[in-house]
């Protein structure tokens, strides 16, 4: 059963002066649990719009969007907020952590908006568990300005995972990171995906797309290519390989 199913999705932005821009001109897609997809394309191709609609931040102008069989297009603001909270995890290029707030409190944020009304002890426990999952448990009380870019993105990942969403949406998650940290984050995403998490990622780097399982290429609001990744790259192996090479380099 697909987690996400969209059919003939359209999005039109009306501009000042009666002009309207078609950002999506009828996109149909299906994502199942355990998939790792990269949406690629030049800027203006509609990939960010698609991600925002998938994330229930932006309503589609027309078309059908089923998330876990809920018809998102027909839902009201309150239910959309609940969907975002429970079913969707967001990771952004600029991390988007609350400044002057510890990693733990940043991670707690989605739990605080959770409708099941968790107690503070439970919230703290789950947030710590999520931080542990991204390997940052020992830095729980660090503020974003005390963390490196990669660590900040890990906190953002912990925050996205803390409510056990059914899909992780990542918008250029490695865009602000150096190549070494990019490998770390991609390794982490691959690991999460291996555990069954559906990940949909927007990127414009071919290289990054090679770590996913499926590449969707967009142009002018349409999907022009949808293909599985052959010769998938493995970030974990490359990272350890790199350090080995570096080690060898220093030895010789």
């Amino acid at each position: 059963m697909p987690v996400i199913e969209i059919e003939n999705l359209r999005k039109t932005y009306s501009m000042d002066g009666g002009l309207s821009v078609e950002a999506l001109c009828g996109v149909s897609l299906c994502f199942e649990s355990g998939e790792f997809a990269a949406i690629m394309g030049a800027s203006g191709s509609g990939k960010s719009t698609l991600l925002n609609i998938l994330g229930c931040l932006d309503p589609p102008t027309a078309g059908r969007y089923l998330l876990n069989d809920d018809n998102v297009a027909a839902l009201e603001g309150e239910r959309l907020a609940a969907l975002r909270n429970e079913n969707i995890g967001f990771v952004f290029q600029s991390f988007n952590l609350l400044s002057r707030t510890s990693a733990l409190e940043n991670t707690e944020l989605p739990l605080m908006y959770n409708h099941s009304g968790l107690g503070m002890t439970e919230i703290r426990r789950r947030a710590l568990a999520a931080l542990d999952r991204v390997g940052l448990a020992e830095r729980a009380d660090h503020h974003p300005n005390q963390l490196s870019g990669g660590q900040q993105q890990r906190v953002a990942l912990a925050r996205a995972l803390v409510n056990e969403p059914s899909v992780l949406l990542a918008d250029e998650p490695t865009g602000n990171l150096d190549s070494r940290t990019t490998l770390d984050i991609m390794a982490l995403l691959q690991q999460l995906n291996d555990q069954g998490m559906l990940i949909v990622m927007v990127t414009h780097e071919q290289e990054i797309g090679a770590y996913t399982r499926r590449i969707l290429e967009m142009r002018d609001g349409l999907i022009i290519r949808d293909s599985p990744v052959e010769n998938r790259r493995h970030a974990r192996a490359e990272a350890s390989g790199e350090s080995t090479t570096r080690l060898n380099a220093t030895e010789s």
């Binding site: 994330g55 907020a81 975002r84 925050r159």
Partner: peptide
């Protein structure tokens, strides 16, 4: 503004 955006993205309702 960004903080508000983050809160909405992680599930805050308008009335929250």
């Amino acid at each position: 503004t960004r903080e508000i955006g983050i809160r909405v993205a992680v599930g805050a309702r308008t009335r929250d």
